[in-house]
Design a protein around this nucleic acid. Structure first.
Length: 435
RNA sequence: UCCCCGGUAGCUCAACCGGUAGAGCACCUGACUGUUAAUCAGGGGGUUGGGGGUUCGAAACCCUCCCGGGGAGCCA
């Protein structure tokens, strides 16, 4: 009985007979030599079958093999310099578990991969293709990297609720549900809850899905996306700017270390990622506006940056760039005003290089009860809903700060892909929830 | 909510001024003892998104509806 092994471990079994359990990814033939490319989830391997080395019956059955049929194959592992993974398998025998007929995503060349309108409804099958396989593994590494980064620094993970009684950001983009006759909303951010938790644990973070019913149909938007939000008591703006730099540098390094093959499959320029080292560029909003004006772009102080502006700013740097101290008018109520200039707040956005746009938004929070109450009144927010949040400023309030990193946009940037919908297993897009 | 682009073979796209539908890939058949997006030869495959209109003649022009994509606003 041959031992069942995974393709990623084949190098340890050179010269041995092994069993591979997987699917037929591709096949090629050259007369008396047949090639089967198998995938088993852990990788891809080419299996070779030469006429005369297997039974004529098995050799002839090659032409019956269809793409994505499930298969159990037995063969001998051989070192092969010509093979991408360094090993090949000489086929002894194989058995079809289930024959796939007319697999809906055809084997295609680069220049005519189907349109997303064709691929998205087949997302459950599209996940099997090489690039999507690579992307999900990069996502996995980033998610593990997030957990490791914070736990290595003694943070406590606090899971924020998904069903919430009120909005954190604007109210136009909430998914409304019925909660025993009362309205409840799917969470847009765990921030308010981690603010409470950091007063209990000091250093905390939450990591989970967030939901925004924005009518946005662009390659940067998902209705459901994952966000990691650290929040730290006694941290001020400079402290979270430093933490965010350390964090992003760490995630890029992890992906470079653990997913080089996957980045290669995606055709990512590794040199660009290797430049992601601290210190990152740090500029004020004022300085960012100057960059735009120097480039001849029309921009009014007080406006928020759009996609074009973000791209123009990030193009000026090879590392990510932090822009801090935005006009208070365009930022939410919980951000603390800069004591040295009340027109701006102590916030920070991090823009990824190469025009990939904003990946982090964070701030020092308003920690003074009276000031925060005044802000609630100015914004016409329902104080009843936020009584608990105001309590945090009544019972041992301290300076505290945090930020949120959207992991899909981070994956898009690190992987060098174009669209967020490929960065999540089953994307929820505007008016699209299948499969 | 608004703006722009598109819909032709299973997929990606052609089709000149409006003249009667074509290629690559996929698929099927055959050839090939080292292919890496294999290659070579042959074959099948179309109510040109729906409806209406203009015209001797519409994939093309006009109206309308449907579907898809991108972007603005908003944001991660």
């Amino acid at each position: 009985m041959a031992k069942w092994v995974y393709i990623e471990d084949l190098k340890k079994f050179i010269g041995e007979e092994v069993e591979i359990r997987g699917w037929l990814y591709n096949k090629r033939s050259s007369g008396k030599v047949k090639f089967l490319i198998l995938r088993d989830g852990s990788g891809f391997v080419q299996c070779v079958m030469v006429k005369g080395t297997v039974s004529d019956e098995l050799f002839a059955s090659f032409k019956e093999l269809t793409l994505e049929s499930s298969i159990v194959l037995v063969g001998v592992v051989r070192e092969e310099k010509r093979a991408p993974g360094g090993v090949e398998i000489d086929v002894k025998d194989y058995k079809i578990i289930q024959k796939a007929v007319d697999y809906p995503i055809p084997k295609v060349r680069e220049e005519n991969i189907p349109d997303v309108g064709v691929l998205l409804p087949k997302r459950h099958l599209w996940l099997r293709s090489k690039k999507q396989w690579a992307l999900m593994r990069i996502r996995d590494t980033i998610e593990k990297g997030i957990e490791d980064f914070f736990h290595e620094r003694k943070f406590v993970r606090i899971d924020s609720p998904i069903l919430t009684p009120s909005a954190c950001e604007g109210t136009t983009t909430l998914f409304k549900t019925d909660y025993f006759g009362e309205p409840a909303y799917l969470s847009q951010s765990g921030q308010l809850y981690v603010e409470a938790a950091c007063m209990a644990h000091g250093k905390v973070y939450c990591f989970g899905p967030t939901f925004r019913a924005e009518k946005s149909k662009t390659r940067r938007h998902l209705m459901e996306f994952w966000m990691v939000e650290p929040e730290i008591a006694f941290y001020e703006l400079d402290d979270i700017m430093s933490l965010s730099e350390e964090f992003v540098e760490y995630l890029v390094k992890r992906v470079l270390e653990e997913r080089e093959e996957e980045l290669h499959i995606l055709g990512r320029d590794l040199k660009k990622l290797e430049k992601i080292k601290r210190p990152f560029a740090r500029i004020t909003y004022d300085e960012a506006v100057k960059i735009l004006k120097d480039k001849g772009m029309e921009f009014e102080w007080g406006d928020d940056f759009g996609g074009d502006e973000e791209t123009a700013i990030s193009e000026a740097f090879e590392t990510p760039v932090i822009v801090h101290r935005y006009p208070a008018k365009i930022k939410p109520f919980y951000m603390k005003r800069d004591p040295e200039n009340p027109d701006v707040v102590l916030n920070m956005d991090m823009l990824a290089p190469e025009g990939y746009g904003e990946i982090i938004g964070g701030s020092q929070r308003e920690d003074d009860y009276d000031t925060l109450l005044k802000r609630f009144e100015e914004e016409n927010l329902p104080i009843e809903d936020y009584k608990w949040y105001l309590d945090l400023r009544k019972y041992g309030s301290v300076p505290h700060s945090g930020f949120g990193l959207g992991i899909e946009r981070t994956i898009v940037w690190i992987s060098g892909i174009r669209h967020v919908r490929e960065s999540i297993p089953f994307p929820r897009l505007l008016e699209k929830i299948y499969p």
